[in-house]
Amino acid sequence: MSNFNFVPQPVLGDFKHESKGVSIVEQTKLAIVSVACPNDGDEALVASVQNAFACSLPDVSSVEVSNSGPYNGNVRWLGLQPQQWFVLFEQSAEQSAPLTVIKDQLGDTAYCTDQSDSWVSLEVSGPLAINALERICPIDLHLAVFPVGTVARTSMEHLSVIITRTGEDQFLMMSAASSADSFLHAITQSVRNITA
């Protein structure tokens, strides 16, 4: 057997961009696992999440950050739809596959699906980030309406986008990996349009 060269490719080639007031950084190590709660299994899932991650399950559109457990507690739970969450954490080479990690913790209290390769993730931050995003984001991102720890799924430039506020002027934006180029173009064009 010949040697095959399997190299994981970041969707946008480890994209980074810094301009006046806005920076865009591709998140290349983010593991994403979707977790669904079995019907009538709410209590069991709440207990297993509490047990493994010491955090509660967020409501739809909220974010919970775990306090302990795997990945030193750096695990974010995004409430995306009734009975479904995305679990986000930084993937390290030493650990087993993301799906296995989460499945090991939750056992049969949840249905899990690996989504790590389904999304391109960009951190958009800086004092002008919100000005750039208002060109494409129909959601009200005013800090009082969309505070830190809020997540929304919406559409930008015909693309489905999950946007999470991770800081006062910092957002994690996820969109389908296959249309990553168009997604990046939508954001960089917005930045160009406010800073040109």
């Binding site: 010949s2 994981p8 490719q9 970041p10």
Partner: peptide
């Protein structure tokens, strides 16, 4: 294969 290996995979298939 997971999408991150998609480019490697087509090249590996060509090799195989």
């Amino acid at each position: 294969v997971p999408t991150r290996y998609g480019d490697s995979m087509i090249r590996a298939l060509m090799q195989a």
